[in-house]
Simulated assay, not measured.
Amino acid sequence: MKQTKDYEIDLGALAHNAAEQAEEFVRKVWEASWKVCHYRNLPKWLQDNDFLHRYHRPPLPSFGACFRSIFRMHTETGNIWTHLLGCIAFIGVSIYFLTRPSFELPAQEKIIFGAFFGGAIICLFFSFAFHTLSCHSVEVGRLFSKLDYCGIALLIMGSFVPWLYYGFYCHYQPKVIYLSVVCVLGCLSIIVSLFDKFSEPNLRPLRAGVFMSFGLSGIVPAIHYSLMEGWFSQISQATLGWLILMGILYIIGAMFYALRVPERWFPGKFDLWGQSHQIFHVFVIAAAFVHYHGISEMAMYRVTVGECEVPHPPIDF
């Protein structure tokens, strides 16, 4: 009797293992042979841009399948590769910059530039991760969507640090005030990004507006800096020119993202390439490199000028 029970248990275990192996086999075959689908065939949580009709990834509930989809053609391919390559480029630039000998580049300057490099790398990496894993599941997509928005806030915060540091290099009080305000606004942007509703497709203009407002808050210190240095001085023209160009690139990119053009005008024609989100990514990378060049010019000017002038006390007679 006992042998019969043991035999039945063994058969049950074998059947269970066989079922698991068959299920794993079917899952691997399906993951290897999945096909892109039309927007209308996507589950609700994957329906983000109804102007992109075809070439969508179906749900891929496996991290391996999601990462392998990097090398397949679908609506997210351009979004993945633009920020993946941008992230790699910034990692390379930051390694070159931060490993310079200390007699060429003091540690304090490396820390200031490190804030910008860190914000840029985190932003681009989170964006790459989100576009890669957004089709995994509702929970994973929502998590990395929040990380993506937090990365944008960190990029804006990191971009403010070097130019406020060098722009107000000899003016301690306004520098501390502006850096404190930037930190507060950045934290508020991150808190807003953590709400589930913030990532809903119909709130796309709100998302663009939040980050544009955060970036445009830099107009106040920019005007202060220009008045302090002189509107037509050489340093003001050089640094403000790059700063203005960076702002223009960010704003244009955000407008493409919010308005969903050109696919809004030609639905189904930009499913693979040339869609608004890809254009937004390109503008973000271009703006980040423009900003890097601008703050490098500011740092070079500060190194050339030297220490701040100490005002002489009045002479008593």
Rank of each mutant, 00 (worst) to 15 (best):
K2A: 02
K2E: 08
L11V: 04
G12T: 13
L14M: 10
A15H: 01
H16E: 02
N17W: 06
A18W: 01
K28W: 08
C37D: 11
C37P: 06
R40S: 14
N41W: 03
L42Y: 02
D50A: 06
F51H: 13
L52A: 00
H53N: 01
R54H: 14
Y55D: 09
Y55S: 07
R57I: 05
P59H: 03
P61D: 05
F63K: 09
G64A: 00
A65V: 03
C66T: 01
S69E: 10
T75A: 13
E76P: 03
G78S: 11
I80V: 11
I80G: 01
W81V: 05
T82K: 00
H83G: 07
L85F: 11
C87A: 15
I88C: 11
F90G: 04
G92M: 12
G92V: 06
V93H: 02
S94C: 14
R100K: 14
R100I: 08
R100S: 12
P101K: 10
A107W: 13
A107Q: 12
Q108C: 06
I112S: 09
F113V: 04
G114S: 07
G118T: 12
G118Y: 08
A120G: 13
I122V: 15
C123L: 11
F125D: 04
F126E: 11
F126W: 14
F128Y: 15
A129L: 15
L133S: 05
S134I: 10
S134L: 06
H136V: 04
V138S: 12
R142N: 14
S145N: 15
L147D: 03
C150G: 03
G151H: 00
G151L: 00
V161K: 02
P162L: 01
L164H: 07
Y165N: 07
Y165G: 03
Y165T: 10
Y166D: 10
Y166W: 15
C170M: 12
I177G: 00
I177A: 05
Y178C: 00
L179C: 14
L179W: 14
V181L: 15
V182T: 07
V184N: 12
V184Y: 09
G186S: 01
I190H: 13
L194P: 10
K197E: 04
F198K: 09
S199C: 06
E200I: 01
L203D: 02
P205L: 02
R207A: 05
M212E: 10
L216K: 02
L216Y: 11
S217I: 02
S226T: 04
L227N: 15
W231D: 03
W231M: 06
W231E: 06
F232H: 12
F232V: 05
Q234D: 15
I235R: 14
S236W: 08
S236F: 08
T239E: 14
G241M: 07
W242M: 07
I244H: 04
L245Q: 02
M246P: 04
G247V: 03
L249W: 07
M255T: 11
Y257L: 10
V261I: 15
V261F: 09
V261T: 13
E263M: 06
E263R: 12
K269W: 02
F270Q: 01
L272F: 09
G274K: 08
H277C: 09
I279G: 01
V284H: 06
A286I: 12
A286P: 05
F289C: 04
F289P: 07
V290A: 11
H291Q: 04
Y292H: 11
H293Y: 10
M300L: 14
T304G: 04
C308R: 00
V310T: 14
P311K: 12
D316Q: 12
F317R: 11
